[in-house]
């Protein structure tokens, strides 16, 4: 690779090659899941059981505290917890994507973004396992969803585009600054409480500034999934913010990745 190549070209080349050979990332990601649960007969559904217990317990406690209708609150907290878990894992594991694959990176000329995709795929498989809880909750309460549920497809695509740039940027920065991963962990922990995961926006006292929700990017990212799954259409701002974030985020990510792509191996 020549130095003359622009940052954008270097980044684009790496990412396109990774996507074209997605089967490698998919195989590695799948292998990660299989490896973790190889000796248990129900495999990754262990996680589903854990998640189910968590949802039932927190749903019951917070639903009672907030005096909410369970048929409304339980589906809400169910999706919130499942997807927050997904964000959290992606961001935390995403930031160590390069560090944990350093041996491979130092030996084989595999495009780097493959390892971000690997992390993404592994956690998406786990997400799919966890998602089986949701229909059970719906059936239990006899709740119905209508065609708005289909909006979850564009919602998930937009969500993934956003999560992938975050993972890429963090993977680069965390390889260089090893204490950043801990800071990220803290941020995600706090994020869970300030984002409506365990509380509903309707629980906020009237007169609360809407900024409390709207400046939180995770509120929007969660809404484009949760609203459709609950049979509602997300409000426009829930779409605009993630769309804007995707554009800005990827611009920064491509710049950083192009600039430091060739330095990452030296940082490992």
């Amino acid at each position: 690779m020549h130095k003359e190549h622009s940052y954008g070209a270097i980044a684009r080349d790496d990412i396109l090659r990774s996507i074209r050979n997605f089967q490698l990332a998919a195989l590695l990601g799948w292998q990660d899941v299989v490896q973790r649960y190889r000796r248990s007969s129900i495999g990754a559904f262990w996680l589903t059981i854990n998640m189910g217990v968590l949802i039932a317990a927190l749903g019951f406690v917070f639903g009672t505290i907030f005096d909410s209708k369970m048929s409304e609150f339980l589906p809400f907290i169910c999706i919130g917890l499942i997807f927050w878990g997904y964000f959290n894992q992606l961001i935390n594991e995403g930031s160590t994507s390069f560090i944990t694959n350093s041996e491979t990176l130092l030996q084989l000329p595999i495009p780097f973004f493959t390892f971000v995709l690997r992390t993404w795929w592994r956690n998406t498989i786990i997400l799919l396992h966890n998602l089986v809880i949701y229909p059970v909750v719906l059936i239990f309460f006899g709740a119905l969803v209508d065609t708005d549920v289909l909006l979850v497809v564009p919602g998930f695509i937009l969500l993934s585009i956003n999560l992938l740039w975050m993972m890429l940027i963090l993977a680069i920065l965390c390889t260089r600054y090893r204490d950043l991963a801990q800071i990220i962990q803290n941020i995600m922990q706090v994020g869970m409480y300030v984002t409506p995961v365990m509380w509903m926006p309707s629980h906020l006292p009237t007169g609360t500034s809407p900024l409390m929700l709207n400046i939180n990017p995770f509120f929007h990212l969660l809404s484009i999934i949760r609203e459709p799954l609950q049979g509602r259409s997300p409000i426009p701002i829930n779409w605009y913010v993630p769309a804007l974030m995707a554009i800005l985020g990827w611009t920064v990510a491509l710049f950083l990745f192009g600039k430091y792509r060739q330095r990452i191996n030296y940082w490992l």
Binding site: Q23, L24, L27, L28, Q31, V34, Q35, R38, R39, T104, L108, I110
Partner: peptide
């Protein structure tokens, strides 16, 4: 933890 055959697929893909 994976079988010989699975490893052929895995290592092969890495190559």
């Amino acid at each position: 933890e994976a079988t010989g055959r699975q490893n052929i697929a895995l290592r092969g893909a890495l190559l």
